[in-house]
Design a protein around this nucleic acid. Structure first.
Lengths: 185, 185
DNA sequence: TCAACCCTACCAAGTGTTAGGTAGGATCAT
DNA sequence: ATGATCCTACCTAACACTTGGTAGGGTTGA
């Protein structure tokens, strides 16, 4: 793994745990094994590092979603498994979705970071919409709204579960969404 | 309004906009009209100020919920109106629910603040559960889970709507929750 | 040789917090 | 009634520390 990737990986972990504002160069450098000033050789500013982190994050998410669908080929099954993406963050050190944390901080974010955060949301909603349309669980005129509702609800579940450090709570919330009819049962 | 209250009000606004970590004494003092050091006459530390802010927040929320129910006396109607609590924060300067923001920051929060944040969630869930039981929309053995699901979903909707600075999006998400069956229609 | 990479050594600005002081009002013994 | 004493509420000035960021120099592999 290149130093560049190591920085991005460490920055992603930090941003998921402490947010963009809570992420700092000294801790980042310590984790990568270089000095703080050396990060500037790879990224010209915190804003651009943050944007790179967010971009990489939604690209990876898009790839994960694609892979999950490829495993089954069934839109309903892919829809049911969608929450897994968020579950994994909780498993890996009780971390929050980067998009959720940065949404909370949104007003204080530099412009390039804001842009990538929006894209993250768009990627998720577009993907859910595609699955909803393919599965035909709601009419095509409702798929956009439903896709956003699922994304928001799952993000909310992750937020709540994380503050209790309780993955079982996340599972229970998703189960509840299913039995209520928000997600396919 | 006493200086004490003015500090609490300013701190609440700041924490809702920038989080606990983003809230700082200089800005707080400027808004209140005193010097930063003078805040220490009213609150011994940032941790205890944060705890006082969070406590006041869930107390006010509890009172708002009570008042909303008193207006109608009908648990179903009160349940339908629950999202209004979160909507108001968006109306007043596109601010996030304090509980949501602090949930995201949870791991970095001082202990006394954590405690109040948990209480905020408990207050919401307990209230929703009471309404669900009174309304009989789900069986009593499911009311706890459903209450948590509603709380998490509405918080998620607020998070998403805020990052787009779009109250109409919040309304659309709530509408979607209703048509999906998570909230009573 | 030369560029990529990382270093040491800073800096200005900001962080929560403390020390010590002051103006003015209440309380109290004389 | 009055001076001594205390309290509330706030101040200025500084503390130790952290932040993102910069300047310039050394090392290393091609």
């Amino acid at each position: 793994m290149s130093t560049n990737d190591a920085i991005l990986a460490a920055a992603t972990r930090s941003a998921q745990a402490h947010g963009y504002g809570g992420m700092n160069y000294r801790d980042l450098a310590k984790e990568v094994g270089i000095k703080a000033a050396s990060i500037y050789h790879h990224f010209p500013s915190k804003a651009e590092l943050g944007a790179a982190v967010a971009k990489r994050y939604w690209e990876n998410t898009a790839a994960d979603l694609e892979a999950m669908f490829a495993e089954t080929g069934d839109p309903i099954k892919a829809l049911r498994r969608y929450p897994e993406i968020f579950r994994r963050s909780l498993e890996r050190g009780n971390r929050l979705c980067l998009g959720s944390f940065m949404s909370a901080e949104y007003d204080d974010l530099p412009e390039p970071v804001k842009k990538e955060v929006q894209t993250f949301a768009n990627v998720n909603v577009a993907w859910l919409r595609k699955l909803l349309n393919a599965a035909g669980v709601v009419g095509p005129e409702q798929s956009e709204e439903r896709a956003r509702a699922i994304f928001a609800a799952v993000a909310g579940a992750q937020l709540m579960a994380r503050s209790r450090a309780d993955i079982a709570l996340f599972d229970a919330l998703i189960k509840s969404y299913r039995s209520a009819g928000l997600l396919p049962a």
